[in-house]
Amino acid sequence: MARTVTPLDLFKTQMEVGMMLAEAQSVIAMRMMGWGGLWSVTTSENDRMVSEKSEAIMMSMQGAALAAMSGKRPDEIMNAAVKPLRQKTRANVKRLGKRGPTLMK
Rank of each mutant, 00 (worst) to 15 (best):
P74A: 05
P101S: 13
M15D: 08
G34K: 01
N79P: 00
G18A: 08
M33N: 05
R48N: 10
A80N: 01
L85F: 02
K94V: 10
D9I: 07
G18W: 08
L38A: 09
M58Y: 09
A64Q: 01
T102Y: 08
Q87P: 00
K98Y: 12
K88M: 15
D75L: 05
M58D: 07
D75I: 04
M33C: 07
S26R: 07
L21C: 07
G97H: 10
M30A: 06
A67N: 00
T13C: 07
R86Y: 07
L10W: 10
T43G: 11
M58N: 09
V50I: 15
A64T: 02
S40T: 13
T102F: 09
W35K: 12
P84D: 04
A24K: 04
E16P: 00
M1E: 10
G63V: 01
A56T: 04
S54D: 08
D75H: 09
I77P: 00
T4R: 13
Q62H: 10
G71N: 05
T42C: 05
M20T: 07
D75R: 02
S40C: 08
L85I: 06
G71T: 03
D75C: 04
A29G: 12
S70W: 03
M1H: 12
L96I: 06
L8N: 09
W39N: 00
S54M: 15
M20L: 12
V93E: 01
R95T: 09
V82S: 00
D47G: 10
V17W: 03
K88C: 05
E16D: 13
R86N: 03
E16Y: 05
K12H: 11
R86T: 02
W39H: 07
W39V: 04
L38K: 05
G63F: 02
K53Y: 14
K105H: 14
L10A: 07
K105I: 12
K98I: 13
R48D: 12
M58S: 12
N92E: 07
S51F: 14
K88R: 15
A56N: 03
T4N: 11
L85S: 00
A91N: 11
K105Q: 13
V82H: 01
E55H: 09
P7R: 14
R99I: 05
A56L: 06
G36L: 13
S70P: 00
R31E: 09
W39E: 03
V50R: 13
E16L: 10
M78E: 05
A22W: 12
E45R: 06
M20S: 04
V5C: 08
P7G: 08
S51H: 11
P7C: 11
V50Q: 10
L21M: 14
T6L: 11
M32V: 15
M104C: 09
I77S: 00
E23R: 07
W35P: 00
I57C: 02
M15F: 14
V93C: 03
K53H: 14
E45G: 02
R3L: 13
R3Y: 09
E45L: 07
R3C: 05
M104D: 05
I28E: 11
T43H: 09
T4P: 02
M33R: 08
G71S: 05
S70T: 03
D9R: 06
M69I: 06
W35E: 14
R95G: 01
A24D: 08
N92D: 08
T13P: 00
E76Q: 08
E76W: 03
V50N: 06
M30S: 02
K105S: 11
E76C: 03
